[in-house]
Nucleic acid binder design. Structure first.
Lengths: 170, 170
DNA sequence: AACTACATGTAAGAAGTTACATGATTTT
DNA sequence: AAAATCATGTAACTTCTTACATGTAGTT
């Protein structure tokens, strides 16, 4: 049920069309909660039906601009403060680690070395988007910076772990 | 498609019934790739149909003991070495951070403080399972320790981040 | 006139969750 | 005899992915 709240959260900053939201997703939530276009449009339809958003304006090319309603705002706040975040996040990267005995030690080390590299790349990529949120004083930029820091810290921890793990395989 | 490989990975250590696998999941992969009973049984059916596992023995109460086949072992190795782990892992915990401007600063800080506490608890819980894998020299224990270290490191990083984040909200 | 950007939708399928449903052995 | 454990399955529903399908308005 989180896509629904992701959409509500973006609409809380101002009205937008499905098309606008898609672009917004790509520059803000892409690393946290990716969404596809088809998912977005159907979610907007359901949100409208539930009265959490409403079509505020119609434009050219069938454009429908959605705005969050009071009920939508209330639901968003309820979700933030009263709903416990999901416990486990699945990781197929880590799942493979359990089964590394099934490949040769060289391959196992290679796997971990590769993961260390990918984590490093991810960290670099995130560093690369920092300039774009650095001096925004809108809500999404402000909290986006905090989310970015999360990605940076966790990415580094993951890289260090992978390097350590590689050294553990005799 | 990862549940399939999780099952193959466990069966690579030895034959087991769906019931056995369920218990194995709970003590080994639960934090990395949880699975429900219904999911497991239907996956075993599909794996058998695909020839990646086979019923090796039948026991009382309709017990069916499955064993991995050569094709299953090959598929497992292929998945480990040739398939790129999924890039993004969704986090509804982090998603909420983007929208923290929608609640009061006190509530926002409370949210982050709570997350710091939950991360700390998770780390403690993981420390608690360490004794159980500490001196196993089977594959699952050996690599389980490396996976455990991942959980510990990432959990601590998450806790520290949440504490830092709380301090950032004026 | 052609191209790019804007804009919305449908359909099929895979993966995961929750709940229901049933029954046989073994242990106390 | 009762309770706990073993053991397997089905059904309904939600979420997510991938691919298909269509058309309009603005720019060069």
């Amino acid at each position: 049920m989180s896509l629904r709240h992701a959409v509500l959260g973006l609409l809380a900053e101002g009205p937008a069309s499905g098309y606008d939201l898609m672009k917004l997703f790509d520059v803000s939530l892409a690393n946290t909660w990716p969404a596809t276009q088809s998912q977005l449009y159907s979610e907007l339809g359901k949100l409208a039906e539930a009265g959490l958003v409403a079509v505020a304006a119609e434009g050219p090319r069938g454009r429908k601009e959605y705005a969050i309603t009071d009920a939508g705002r209330a639901e968003l706040r309820r979700w933030i403060t009263d709903v416990e975040p999901t416990r486990v996040t699945r990781s197929d990267m880590l799942l493979r680690v359990f089964f590394l005995a099934q490949v040769s030690p060289e391959e196992a080390r290679g796997y971990l070395r590769n993961q260390a590299g990918l984590a490093a790349e991810r960290v670099e990529r995130l560093e690369g988007i920092r300039p774009f949120v650095e001096d925004g004083d809108d809500n999404l930029s402000r909290y986006g910076r905090i989310a970015l820091e999360y990605g940076l810290r966790l990415g580094k921890a993951q890289q260090e772990w992978a390097e350590w793990a590689e050294s553990q395989i005799k």
